[in-house]
Amino acid sequence: MKQGPVNKMLVYIDGSEESITAAEYSVVLSKKMGAELYAIYVINTRALDDLVKSRIFLQIEEEEYKRDLESDADRYLNHVKELATKKGVAINLIKKSGNVHAELKKSVQENDIDLLVLGELAHVRSRRDEFYNEAERAMRIVDCSVMIVKDEEKVWELYEALE
């Protein structure tokens, strides 16, 4: 039976500092609200495919970069796991490959997530930013509520103060 407004939250990690701040805030929220915490990293294989199709990348480069991205995913997810574990919060790690916003939408559905947490979005400096930023696209298409985390310093203080 559901107990509160947020029972399962998913934080999207892309390796940026903003996404790590979002992870810290998620740990705080999860502990305070008793919500189950998930963290997801999506290896953007769609972009890799596009680069091979457009012939910017050779097959050999695609393989090399895919290995790099796999190891990035593990590194960042492990870091987030450490952040959660340090504060006694259990976390479920999800590693996916494919189209980032589509995988986020799918994971929200599959895990019955009721809050997606994203790091602060980059400033829109050209019109296409609004259309191609993966976090922005995810924000528009997921079926649950979305929270954008801001103020790195304040979040860090909250995280540090968490017992």
């Binding site: 972009a47 910017i56 790099d68 296409r128 191609y132």
Partner: peptide
């Protein structure tokens, strides 16, 4: 630089998309 494959791929793929 090594270790920034994600942003590298994203930037190249944006170039690929624009130059279409």
């Amino acid at each position: 630089p090594p270790g920034q494959s994600g942003p590298h791929i994203e930037a190249l793929s944006e170039i690929a998309r624009l130059t279409k």
